[in-house]
């Protein structure tokens, strides 16, 4: 920790090593959005309920609004910016487009990251996808199409 109380972190962010310093009470979400300018990760409720802030930390989906940035020193963080490009979208991004799995799009980055992690668990039924995605709210109500997009990649 430096004299001004800031904490030096080494992260791997979307595959690239990154040295950055944070205030002790910065959340990972605020680090990503306000300090690093990666605004694809959204702040919804800021209380762990809506899932708009979902990112992957060491391959596991977490809510970055409840993650104290300092506690994630050394971890590999993946955000929506790190999974695909306009030319080469991630397969789940392409599936979301095919299935019209969004309306306003605000929750979509979190839905995609959460869905990518859920697919690692190999859900075997639509009900398991719905249950597994309950940490991501969609106020436009695109749930059936979100489930369908994930189901397609799950081979269901």
């Amino acid at each position: 920790m430096s004299d001004d109380g800031r904490i030096a972190l080494s992260l791997t962010l979307n595959g690239q090593p990154l040295e950055v310093d944070v205030a002790p009470c910065d959340t990972l979400l605020d680090l990503l959005r306000d300090q690093l300018g990666l605004t694809g990760t959204k702040k919804g409720c800021d209380m762990g309920a809506c899932g708009a802030c979902t990112v992957l930390a060491n391959g596991r989906r977490i809510k970055s609004c409840l993650a104290l940035a300092a506690a994630y020193d050394g971890e590999a963080i993946i955000t929506i910016e790190g999974i695909g490009t306009l030319e080469h979208p991630h397969p789940l991004q392409a599936a979301f487009i095919r299935h019209d799995a969004l309306q306003c799009g605000y929750c979509t980055p979190g839905q995609i990251l959460s869905g990518i992690a859920l697919l690692e668990d190999k859900p075997r039924a639509l009900a398991a996808i719905s249950e597994g995605m309950s940490g991501n709210l969609c106020r436009c109500g695109a749930y059936p199409n979100i489930v369908a997009a994930i189901a397609e990649l799950a081979g269901l």
């Binding site: 809510k63 959460s114 940490g135």
Partner: peptide
């Protein structure tokens, strides 16, 4: 309890 993300944390 909770959600997949919360249970991971």
């Amino acid at each position: 309890g909770a959600s997949g993300q919360i249970r991971n944390m």
